[in-house]
């Protein structure tokens, strides 16, 4: 069984936010307005935050998405198992099961789970832009990055139809696919020959807030020498 992981090289990352837009479009994440953004209603599965990292004089721009923890604090507290850790290590959210209590959003130390305060809204002209592979979340449920899980399912189906095993390049989340600085690498952490596994062993590798015991599968590579 694969253990999907993502490595982000902060030394390469330029903070251009292409990943942010790619994620938004890929996953039908609705747009904000100045008012909603100011009231904490900005919907993002992936965003840039200014994180104070050890050894850096100023805050670094850190692309922050669901850290896909192996010990996720969010899944423990869900009263209905709407969020759970799937066998491949992806923290999934089952929208029809979610009651919208927002306990998971509060338990997550990374604050990466977002809640649908209102029904998602696109201008009529923009509705066809939505990705039919990803559902539209109704109002009142929590959502978060799934490592573009729909792409895994599609890739697996394509590979099976072609009569082969899934190859490393078959399944790449939208953020990784677009990263112009090639700062993001995605793959199977359980495969010792994968690039992510190699990078995860780099002396620059760290997991954010790993002291909390969350065991994230998003691994950052430190900036600087």
């Amino acid at each position: 069984m694969a253990r999907w992981g993502l490595v982000i090289d902060l030394d390469r990352c330029t903070g251009c936010q292409a990943c942010v837009v790619a994620c938004k479009h890929e996953n039908n994440v609705p747009f904000s307005t100045p008012e909603t953004a100011r009231g904490g209603r900005l919907m993002t599965w992936l965003q840039l935050v200014a994180a104070d990292l050890p050894g850096r004089p100023t805050a670094s721009a850190l692309p922050l998405m669901c850290q896909q923890c192996d010990r996720p604090p969010c899944t423990d507290v869900c009263p209905t198992s709407a969020t759970y850790l799937n066998p491949e290590g992806i923290v999934a959210q089952i929208y029809p099961r979610c009651i919208g209590c927002r306990y998971c959003t509060n338990a997550c130390p990374y604050a990466v789970k977002v809640f649908n305060w209102t029904a998602p809204d696109w201008p009529d002209a923009m509705a066809p832009m939505r990705n039919p592979d990803v559902s539209l979340r109704p109002k009142g449920v929590v959502e978060t990055c799934t490592f573009c899980h729909h792409r895994l399912i599609a890739a697996r189906e394509r590979a099976r139809a072609a009569g082969r095993e899934i190859a490393p390049d078959d399944y790449v989340p939208a953020c990784v696919a677009t990263c112009p600085a090639e700062a993001m690498v995605f793959g199977d952490l359980s495969d010792p020959h994968s690039e992510v596994a190699a990078l995860a062993g780099s002396p620059r590798a760290f997991r954010w807030m790993e002291e909390l015991g969350t065991q994230p599968k998003v691994i950052y590579l430190r900036e600087g020498e």
Partner: peptide, 25 residues
Amino acid sequence: VKLEGNPLCPVARGKLCAKGQAAIE
């Protein structure tokens, strides 16, 4: 529904920046 970089283009090499991603809007 979505824009991606053209992997054969020597400039983009399959990648796009934020503006390029948002061009569909």
